[in-house]
Design a protein around this nucleic acid. Sequence first.
DNA 1: TTATATTAGTTGCATAACTAACTATATGTC
DNA 2: GACATATAGTTAGTTATGCAACTAATATAA
Lengths: 151, 151
Amino acid sequence: MSNNQFKRGELYSVVNGMATTAVARRLQKNFRNAGLDITIEQWSVLYHLWKEDGLSQLELGNRTFRDKASTTRLIDNLEKQELVLRVASKEDRRINLVYLTDIAKPLQQITYELANQTMNEALLNISKEEIDIVKNVFQRVYDNLTNKDLL
Amino acid sequence: MSNNQFKRGELYSVVNGMATTAVARRLQKNFRNAGLDITIEQWSVLYHLWKEDGLSQLELGNRTFRDKASTTRLIDNLEKQELVLRVASKEDRRINLVYLTDIAKPLQQITYELANQTMNEALLNISKEEIDIVKNVFQRVYDNLTNKDLL
DNA sequence: TTATATTAGTTGCATAACTAACTATATGTC
DNA sequence: GACATATAGTTAGTTATGCAACTAATATAA
């Protein structure tokens, strides 16, 4: 057995069950307290649209690590709340381009501040170096698992 | 802005959307391929029962970082599949003690091997030191966010 | 140009998450 | 002993996840 072996369950319970959901839940709570009626999942989509508006559903799915079915439903809900708009692409009518509405645009600044504030709480006394290692490890874990799928 | 600041969205998408679910999905797939009809969520409960049988639902919720409502449904499903059994405590009849059935017990070894194999894939070329840092950072993130709730 | 395969998105089905409101049992106080 | 409070678990309601099967549009090949 290699030296970098987790005890079984450990990675899952530490990583998936703990810090991750603690941050997500705190951010969700902060949204609610500020009167913002959006889920962190919805926010993760809006986040990418604020960076680049008019992405296709598939591209949004890639950037938020979701399959297309989940992306469909998430955008359904965003559309119901009139935060987002589907527009069929003229070049390829299979493609839906997703655009922010005027309701969604001003939310960027508020959520920016809440997310920053939440991250500051979450990362209190954690150094830049440690964060870089975490990000790097997670990228490599992801690559380790997904590269195999292409073979 | 402090030096250890994530760009907004970054922690969420990196941590929650990527390595975490990549590992979970891979393990789930490995369970399925082995003919094991359990979800990773169910497995996370069984894992703690294999370590210590007869825990209360609340204790299981604490150990798997779930609220009691989620724990209830998870155990509902485990009970439907006859992997687990609820027994009312004699000392305090509000408490359900959860026990493994004879069907669940032999699954420990198989899932142990599949989880180890999955972790080996996921953690290929990642050092013990890096893993220790990740675990330590996540514990501190969790503490940073949950200690506040007690004030 | 017609038949075949591929691609983007949707829908059905099952599991799971959280919040809030609820039931039933226990505990503490007067 | 009676009343208020706390605790363990359940239920209802909403959102989200993944897989598989489907539709519609586009690209490829004969």
